[in-house]
């Protein structure tokens, strides 16, 4: 699983930082910063999904591995 984060869409709601601090940090102004490059560690996949499902601006997308389905 990969996480895609669109900084242009982020408005600093900080929902991802609350739900998945292992995957998202915030900068000095409160905008999200994606902390992982490449694949999400398996034990954080659920948190990644939560972050995506709760972003009011739809700035986070999950890319599942093609082999999964």
């Amino acid at each position: 699983m990969k996480v895609r984060f669109d900084r242009e869409l982020c408005q600093g709601h900080n929902r991802c930082y609350i739900l998945a601090p292992e995957l998202f940090d915030t900068d000095d102004e409160g905008y999200a910063v994606l902390r992982v490059e490449g694949n999400v560690p398996p034990d954080l996949e659920e948190k990644a999904r939560l972050a995506a499902d709760n972003c009011p601006e739809f700035a986070i997308e999950i890319e599942d591995d093609a082999t999964d389905g």
Partner: peptide
């Protein structure tokens, strides 16, 4: 609730600055 993209703090460039 696990999926909750609520708009309590608005949306877009005017997102409530005091939301945190």
């Amino acid at each position: 609730r696990q999926r909750n993209r609520h708009l309590a703090f608005g949306l877009g460039i005017h997102r409530c600055i005091g939301s945190n």
